[in-house]
Simulated assay, not measured.
Amino acid sequence: MASARVTSKGRITIPVAVRKAMQIEAGDRVEFIQVAPGRYEFMAANSEVTELKGMFDKARKAVSIEDMQAAIAKRGAAAR
Rank of each mutant, 00 (worst) to 15 (best):
E48C: 07
R29K: 12
D57H: 07
A17H: 14
V18L: 14
K58P: 00
I72G: 03
S3T: 10
T13A: 13
V30K: 07
A70M: 10
M22I: 00
S64F: 04
R11Y: 11
Q23T: 08
K9Y: 08
N46Q: 02
T7I: 00
D57S: 09
R19H: 03
S64M: 04
I24T: 04
V49F: 10
D67C: 00
A71S: 15
A21I: 00
A26N: 15
R80P: 00
K74T: 13
E48L: 10
I72V: 15
R60W: 05
V16K: 15
T7G: 07
G54V: 08
A79G: 03
V6N: 04
R5N: 10
A21C: 00
G54S: 08
E25N: 13
A73R: 14
V35R: 13
A17Y: 09
I65R: 04
R19E: 08
R29Q: 10
A45R: 13
P15L: 02
R60Y: 04
R19I: 01
I12Q: 04
K20H: 13
V30C: 13
M1C: 06
M55P: 00
Q34W: 02
T50G: 06
K53V: 11
K61F: 09
M68N: 01
S8D: 12
G76E: 15
V16D: 12
M43R: 15
E66P: 00
I33Y: 08
S47W: 12
A79M: 14
I12F: 05
I12P: 01
Q69C: 03
A77L: 13
I24G: 06
V16W: 03
A70T: 10
I24Q: 01
R80K: 15
A44Q: 07
Y40Q: 07
M68T: 04
R19Q: 14
T7D: 11
K53L: 11
M43L: 14
K20T: 13
S3R: 11
R80G: 09
R11C: 09
V63W: 03
V6S: 03
S47Y: 14
P37Y: 02
M22T: 00
I14Y: 05
G10H: 04
T13F: 08
R75L: 10
S3C: 01
R75F: 08
M1R: 10
K74Q: 14
M43D: 01
E31H: 04
K61M: 07
E41V: 10
V49D: 04
T7S: 15
P15H: 05
E31I: 06
F56R: 07
A71L: 13
A4L: 05
I72H: 12
E66F: 04
V16S: 09
M43E: 11
R19N: 09
A4Y: 12
G27V: 08
A36F: 08
I65W: 02
Q23Y: 05
